[in-house]
C-alpha cells in the first residue's frame, strides 16, 4: 500500500524470562483504524509503549515513513509525528484544559529554548491548542482546571493534547476506559472523525466500539499475534473464537 505510515517487523520485548511481546509484525496506514485487542496481559500496552519509545524493543524493527526508528527516545518519536494517549489519564491536573493543550502544542515549536517572550503570545501555538480543544469537543471547558473535569472530559483532554502535537499517527491506549455510555458514544464519534486524516492504532476493550471503528483488527494472546484481518475475518476465525472471544460477544458485534 502506498500510504503505509508505520511497520513493525518481528517486534519482541522480554522482561527477564517473560516474553511480553513476541514477533509482532503489523502495518498502519493513513485513513484506517487498526485495533489491537486481546485479554489482559496479552502485551497490547507493551506494544504501544515500544512504538511510542517508552520502552525499547528487545528485538525486531520499527519503520516509520521509510526510516527506522527502533529504540528512539520517546521525545524524538513524538517530534517525528507519532502521538500517544495513555490508558491511565496522564494530564497536568493543576493546569487548565487550554494550558494542557498549549503545552502540548508548544512542543511543535522548533525549540522551547526561548526565555524572554511570553509563552502565551505565540499565535501558532495558541491556534493549534484551540483547534485541538475544539476537535475533542472541549472548547467550552478551555478555562477549567483539568482536575475539575469529569472523567470522560479528562479522557477527551488526553486525546486533545495528543492532537495538539499535530501527529500523523495516533497511538491510543484504551481511550474509552472507564467511560459511561454517552461519553463513549461521543468518543467513538471523535475517533471516527479523526480516522480520515490520521493513521491510528487503537487498543481497546470495548468490543462494540472496536467493531464499529476498526477496519483492521489484530488479536493478541500471550504476546503473540493470534490472528489479523478485517472485522469479518476475525469474527469468522475459529482460533479467535476459541481463544478469546466468547461467541456471544461476536453475535453482538
Amino acid at each position: 500500500m502506498t500510504d503505509t505510515v508505520l511497520q513493525t517487523h518481528e517486534l519482541s520485548k522480554r522482561f527477564g524470562g517473560l516474553a511480553a511481546v513476541s514477533n509482532v509484525s503489523l502495518e498502519l496506514n493513513v485513513g484506517r483504524i487498526h485495533a489491537v485487542i486481546g485479554p489482559n496481559g496479552a502485551g497490547k500496552s507493551t506494544l504501544i509503549n515500544m512504538l511510542s519509545g517508552d520502552l525499547s524493543p528487545t528485538s525486531g524493527r520499527i519503520v516509520y515513513r521509510g526510516g527506522e526508528i527502533t529504540g528512539f527516545s520517546a521525545d524524538r518519536i513524538s517530534r517525528l509525528g507519532i502521538g500517544r494517549s495513555y490508558q491511565k489519564t496522564n494530564i497536568f491536573l493543576g493546569f487548565t484544559a487550554y494550558e494542557n493543550c498549549r503545552l502540548a502544542a508548544q512542543s511543535r515549536l522548533p525549540s522551547s529554548m526561548r526565555f524572554f517572550r511570553r509563552a502565551t503570545t505565540y499565535h501558532r501555538v495558541r491556534d493549534a491548542a484551540e483547534k485541538a480543544l475544539a476537535q475533542a469537543g472541549l472548547e467550552n471547558r478551555a478555562g477549567t482546571l483539568a482536575s475539575a473535569l469529569s472523567h470522560g472530559e479528562q479522557r477527551q483532554l488526553e486525546i486533545a493534547m495528543c492532537l495538539a502535537t499535530s501527529p500523523k499517527l495516533l497511538l491510543l491506549d484504551e481511550p474509552l476506559a472507564g467511560m459511561g455510555a454517552e461519553e463513549s458514544a461521543r468518543m467513538v464519534e471523535l475517533l471516527k472523525s479523526l480516522a480520515a486524516g490520521h493513521a491510528m492504532l487503537l487498543v481497546e476493550h470495548d468490543m462494540d466500539a472496536v467493531f464499529t471503528l476498526a477496519e483492521v483488527l489484530t488479536v493478541m494472546v500471550n504476546g503473540c499475534v493470534l490472528e489479523s484481518g478485517t472485522p469479518e475475518q476475525i469474527r469468522a476465525s475459529p482460533a479467535v473464537r476459541e481463544a478469546y472471544l466468547g461467541t456471544e460477544d461476536l453475535a453482538h458485534g
Partner: peptide, 18 residues
C-alpha cells in the same frame, strides 16, 4: 512552561516531544 511541566510530570513531557 516546559520546566514547570517537567516538575509536574516529566514522563508526559517526554511523550509530548520535549
Amino acid at each position: 512552561a516546559v520546566i514547570v511541566g517537567i516538575r509536574t510530570n516529566e514522563h508526559r513531557m517526554r511523550s509530548l516531544g520535549y
